[in-house]
Design a protein around this nucleic acid. Sequence first.
DNA 1: GTTAGCACTCTGGCGGAGAGAGTGCTAACC
DNA 2: GGTTAGCACTCTCTCCGCCAGAGTGCTAAC
Lengths: 359, 359
Amino acid sequence: MADLKDYTRLTARDREILKDVILTYILSAEPVSSRSVSKHGKLGLSAASIRNVMADLEEWGYLMQPHTSAGRVPTAAAYHLFIQSMMETRTLPVKERRYIQDNLKVGSADGDDLMETASHLLSELSSQVGIVVTPAMGETVLKAVDFVPVAGRKVLCVVVSSTGFIDNKVIETEEEIPREELVRISNYLTESFAGQTLREIRERLLRMMVEEKAQMDRVLALTIELARHGFSVGESPGVVVDGTSTLLHKPELSDVQRVRRMFEAFADKARLVKILNQCLQGGGVRVLIGEDCELTSELEFSVVATPYGVGDRPLGTLGIAGPSRMDYEKIIPLVCFLGETLSRALAETFSGDPDRDRR
Amino acid sequence: MADLKDYTRLTARDREILKDVILTYILSAEPVSSRSVSKHGKLGLSAASIRNVMADLEEWGYLMQPHTSAGRVPTAAAYHLFIQSMMETRTLPVKERRYIQDNLKVGSADGDDLMETASHLLSELSSQVGIVVTPAMGETVLKAVDFVPVAGRKVLCVVVSSTGFIDNKVIETEEEIPREELVRISNYLTESFAGQTLREIRERLLRMMVEEKAQMDRVLALTIELARHGFSVGESPGVVVDGTSTLLHKPELSDVQRVRRMFEAFADKARLVKILNQCLQGGGVRVLIGEDCELTSELEFSVVATPYGVGDRPLGTLGIAGPSRMDYEKIIPLVCFLGETLSRALAETFSGDPDRDRR
DNA sequence: GTTAGCACTCTGGCGGAGAGAGTGCTAACC
DNA sequence: GGTTAGCACTCTCTCCGCCAGAGTGCTAAC
């Protein structure tokens, strides 16, 4: 394959034909012939002329043939070009916007519910695999903490973040602590630490322990013990994957071998996080296609992802993954809108949000 | 196919040969020939003699041929017979017992963690799909309840069951309730209702509301409002499925069509619950093979399941599912042991359990 | 610059041949 | 009478050649 031709040097006709090939291929999943472009395209050229152009486009790296005498298939470069400068960025239909907003209502949902709903919406509306990278709990901002005695020395610790994430954790204390004392400790910790991230809190506690070691009374020692355990939650972000079974309907995955590699890829959460988080910087929707990264090229896959967060504080990424042949014109606005909606939902969750309608 | 021959009328040799066919088939996934039985079996008969017996076994409904001139494959009836009276019920190797016990330790895990771990263990140790039907929250026994103010009129309600299940729920109250009052209400509800199932509590609250409607003061009204919302949790049981991707390695699922039907079946949680709960009554391990039920016969599948619970109170079922050709000798003890271990873990969770070692 | 025409190439389906596996039956053997 | 060797038969699977169909590339004419 020759070097990629600078796309600005493509003539209007070249672009028109390339676009047609891409759109047709996205629909049909089969190599596109010159004849079909000639028939169905708008520029009334014969198949032979189209062929000339298509041969050029192949030479320039935008198309390829599975074999001689087959039609042509877009390359990753073609998709990139398409997305960057040929696509009509339709906005998402009102119906789908509504649907998303109705489902991502804050209501009585906690953060994890929202994550799952978002992942499911992504998958459902794109017919691809939906992926949401959830925030590492340690990076979330504390809203409230609460300790509940459950049995003997066991205490349930509930940590609530301002974005609606709730973490439960059972800890076992040195001695049995009476209920009233736990209440006092809960109040104290909530009042002192609300508004800071769990990581910051952990660090502050550590410093406190060192500095005040000498003059710590029993209650303070207890408090610190509880807090240390309670706040030591998930360093690493989680991943919510939904709709892997949509893959089984795609014609490009008709042999079990590929399906298997695919499923294995989606099971490797750590790797998914890494890839999705490439999209964290910069904001806006990013698209990885084929050769852009190790995983996607191995599997001939694409990833469309965008960060979400509260204010200018990024919390995670969400997006979809699937065979490179996907309806970018629809999916990009979808991912974009979902990112915005989820961000808004998280911001509202426990902000008091007085203007929300009563149910 | 003739009627199933009463299995007690099979001669020792018939049984020996049938057993050999089953064991070989479980290993190889390929129709078993008379020759291989003759060679590898212990009773030193020629292939021709074996053939005679195998023809009988086919006539009686224990074997079948995919086509003439293929070897033979066990039927569901054969598996049943095998399980019922030919299998050596090995106990689970100590190593695996240990592994299960180590992973199902109560420690700081809550009920849902245990469910997930159990499902994963089932899948991992059997190389089949692991399934756990979790208790409907309404059927669990209350250990403690706690309300935490999070923002404005929003209150987080935490319900803890004695078996370690924790349910979080955000509710929006009519008016803002001060923290101290929430604490008092939490204490009151925990003291009055601990030890009863959530369903019972809901019913009692309803009665209280009707009876005392007239003379209810503000606090009691608040309490009841909170309790009603807080205790109105999941009527229906959930399902935790793990290891569906192991299916992709099975030779019987080499075409995507079947894989798809399979995945669709495992996605239909309601149906799974229904099937698994057929195993609820009676206790002990139950095995459904092929024609035993609609789903398994459609997919040529088997289900090995057992109930778990605390005391004589069943809480749910757990088990594995996979192609009928599976290593029952190993899987049945596995499911059995996991049921026992999970039951024990749930019983210990918040019982105070003073004899457990410190971590 | 465009296009009709044609030779060329590659795929996919179909059918026949042949090997291989396994059976069922029969006749001989112990 | 049970057991087994031998053999014919059947069915699958694979390989191969053939052919139609689809699509291309090239050339020559418009």
